[in-house]
Amino acid sequence: MRLLKRLHWGDWLILAVLLSGAIFFAFQTAETLNYKWRWHLIPNYILGWHTRRQEWFANLLLQGLAVTVRISICASLLAVLLGVILGLARTSRNLTVRLLARTYVELLRNIPPVVVVFIFFFFLSQPLIEALGLERWARGIARSENNAVWVFVFGDMRLFPQLVAGTIVLALFESAFVGEIVRAGIQAVPNGQREAARSIGMNYWQEMRYIVLPQAIRKVIPPLANQFISLIKDSSIVSLISVQELTFKTLELVASTRLIFEAWLTCAGFYFLICFGLSQLFSRLEE
């Protein structure tokens, strides 16, 4: 009710335009494309009922959503770790370190993400998974009986190698942007404070730990939050390397049922709910 009272006539006009557009889209789809809407089938592909076991189970879309959440959390943690290292390297006093970090950042920022995903998947993550024997290890966990914790954290352990590959690829791509955010936060700290730290005998790492980074963290949290939301949307790219996240599962659903508009609109709705909810949470945290 409080929100409705705060709406201006312009807000109502925008809502009316959006509603009219949605109605027009539905009408055009039904009349021009001769498309028959079947929304009543979608809930069953989110949460299904197993008649033999007499229990509910997560169906295609909910399975994909769970993988998207898992890969987004893991990739964001790894991207932040790599991004902090890149940010420190970008502000290092060593010219070679700065040039190497800048080369990494500029390459990833100026190459299409689809190309980056394929390059890192075939040349880095896939050989790494094979070298570490993760596929054999994950299959052993999947066959064991006491794997409830592993399944809860990582999902189907038979798909664990794909999850690791997607996490590595996504984290490496996003770390370039996180690194630039960290660099900007470090450079936003006034030079006078760094000079004061050196004047009392602090070395570089003490200066960073006690003076620069505590102030930089406050500056980088808002853009990092936005980057995390962007990472969730970018996670759809890893469907190209057969990571069974939300977009991949939506493609499977469309191919098997021909629920084209219903499936993709539901997929978009899931992404919107996650990203909008996180944006509201981060706004509260910033306050």
Rank of each mutant, 00 (worst) to 15 (best):
R52L: 10
E106H: 10
E245P: 12
N146A: 09
A79P: 08
I241P: 08
F152S: 03
W264M: 15
K36A: 15
I141A: 13
I200Y: 05
G179C: 07
E130H: 15
Y35T: 04
L108A: 03
W56V: 13
S242M: 13
E106G: 07
V105Y: 08
S92A: 10
I237Y: 14
I111K: 05
E262Y: 03
Y204L: 10
L240C: 11
E195D: 12
G155C: 04
S256T: 10
L108K: 10
N191Q: 14
R194H: 06
E207V: 02
G192T: 08
L95D: 05
I186R: 06
E262A: 00
P112R: 07
Q227T: 01
A255V: 01
P190W: 09
R136T: 08
L86H: 02
E174P: 06
I46D: 02
R143A: 15
A142S: 11
R93W: 15
L61Y: 00
N146H: 12
S175T: 05
I241R: 05
R194F: 03
S175H: 10
L41G: 00
E31Q: 10
R258A: 13
I14R: 00
I23Y: 12
P222R: 00
G87S: 01
Q206M: 14
S20T: 09
Y271M: 05
W150R: 04
N146M: 14
F228R: 07
I274L: 04
I211Y: 06
L172N: 03
W39F: 15
I85F: 03
L246E: 00
A22Y: 07
L163S: 13
L251R: 14
G83I: 03
V151L: 04
P161C: 15
E287T: 12
K219Y: 06
V254I: 11
L15C: 08
F24V: 06
R70D: 10
L78N: 08
K36I: 12
A268R: 04
E252P: 09
V80R: 03
L47V: 10
S256E: 11
F122W: 13
A30L: 09
